[in-house]
Write a protein that binds this DNA or RNA. Structure first.
Lengths: 132, 132
DNA sequence: CCTTGACTTGGAGTGCACTCGAAGTTGTAG
DNA sequence: CTACAACTTCGAGTGCACTCCAAGTCAAGG
């Protein structure tokens, strides 16, 4: 649990995480990321741990979690281990949403595949009707 | 291919499809839905076929397709069978996106499940340290 | 000394997909 | 005749998640 001291610039973190520097500052501003360490010139210096957290945030976003809910989660995280039960509840709710979402996508995927097949057959049929 | 004549009000279609009346008008305005038949009093009268199309639109949206791309698709659809190849291409691209999305969600789901497990164990451990 | 470039801040602007408001028309019920 | 409900249009407003801008600071290079 060695809290690595910050060494990475915001640009480096942007490159490492795929978020823009704008988004990194935005995330910090809205409390998704804790107040980042500063160098003497007041520039941000991120640690490796920060990268880990940011990558986790990215995953939460990618599951469809809203910024608002992520703020709640980040806040609980900062409150420490006493909030573990609440965080587990949030994760369980998220798990169910994601599972439901995957199921829905799979259903729609079935229809898409069917249409590709069906339209493909129609195109074939037309090609036969009017051969070159 | 009997083009059923419109009998359903916008409210009924909203109830049937789960879209709001606002959204139904909006979709028509932006060209996702063709100009709907009107009753003598200029009220919209939807057909069963319209419901089918709207439900398909909902599925496209649910896969993450943008309104813009849906406009393209709807436009091609209205141009008739000659656009089948382009529509198949769009569907194939969509299929790949959805498959990729599902894979991503499954990966993140793995992490979520892991965290639920791990945090669950931490909570257990804490409960043992400080028994009631 | 001057320029360049990477950073800082606060606040404004953007794009998307709706969502709503205001004012008007029409048809039915009391 | 009046009230009401359901619809109509056009345009404005909303919420989300960024995304960008202007003006300023600071360190290093020429």
């Amino acid at each position: 649990m060695a809290t690595t001291t910050g060494t990475l610039t915001i640009k480096e973190v942007a490159a490492a995480t795929g978020l823009s520097v704008h988004t990194l500052r935005y995330y910090e501003r809205v409390g998704l990321i804790h107040a980042i360490d500063r160098a003497d010139n007041s520039h941000r210096r991120y640690s490796e741990d920060d990268i880990g957290w940011i990558n986790f945030l990215k995953k939460l976003r990618a599951t469809g979690m809203s910024i608002h809910d992520m703020q709640t989660y980040a806040h609980l995280q900062r409150l420490g281990d006493s909030t573990l039960p609440q965080r587990v509840e949030m994760l369980k709710a998220l798990q169910q949403q994601v599972e439901a979402h995957i199921n829905e996508l799979n259903e729609h995927l079935g229809l898409i595949r069917y249409k590709i097949e069906y339209y493909g057959a129609m195109i074939e049929a037309e090609a036969l009707e009017a051969p070159a």
